[in-house]
Amino acid sequence: MFEATFNQASILKQVLEATKDLVNDANWDCSAEGIALQAMDSSHVSLVSLSLRGDELASYRCENQISLGINMNTMTKILKCAENNDRTIIRADDDADVMVFVFESEGRDKTSKYEMKLMDIDSEHLGIPEQEYSATVQMSSKEFSRIVRDLSTIGENVEITVDKEGITFGAKGESGSGTVSLKSNPSVDEGSSNITIDLTDSVKLNFALRYLTFFTKAAPLSDNVSLSLSADVPLMVEYAIGDVGFIRYYLAPKIDD
């Protein structure tokens, strides 16, 4: 028996918004520790890894490890039936073919119950090696979304450069080019870009903006985002989900042939 209670539906709603454009179907792997999801997009260029710790949820139980095959679009639609502040319980019996959703209104005067059919998903699980990154940049998640959106109007790819000066995002297209630079030692003034950079080696890498755009759908989960880069390895983009866990995205770099 698996059962997880969230004080508010909004976390689950935001998690689904942050994953459903990348992944159609995914196994939610539930264990005594919590809920984990790992899935690649259909072109195997990017990967999303979600972790929610059971002991940080309103309540959690999972006696036997269970993989729940979920169509992310269907789950998104069911979660839209909940108000943001509804207490939300998700539940599945061992060997069940449905997941049960219970939404309780703040005043506990309305209870809704939905069942969603589960699927058999044959997913490929990848081992992500521990990686020491040359550069890790912490910045405002809103600012990152803005930069990705702005540079997407210029080109399909972004060149990310991190050095001791700061981080620069650059895009080139048929009609022009653009760059956005953030300094690593912002003044203490309010309204400064407020980024921190942990740098051992300068890096310069190219990535497809299309995938970064999908990743920025996680911005409502966290005020901050961290970008971790090393030469010739996938970019890691991480959004913390309060004390409950994280959503991490990996994106393979574009490499000169």
């Binding site: 490929e124 699980h125 990848l126 992500i128 790819n157 996938p234 990996y250 393979a252």
Partner: peptide, 14 residues
């Protein structure tokens, strides 16, 4: 030009 690599080149199958 620049080629998009697959993630599976970087991460092992678990």
């Amino acid at each position: 030009g620049e080629a998009q690599r697959s993630l599976t080149l970087f991460f092992r199958r678990a």
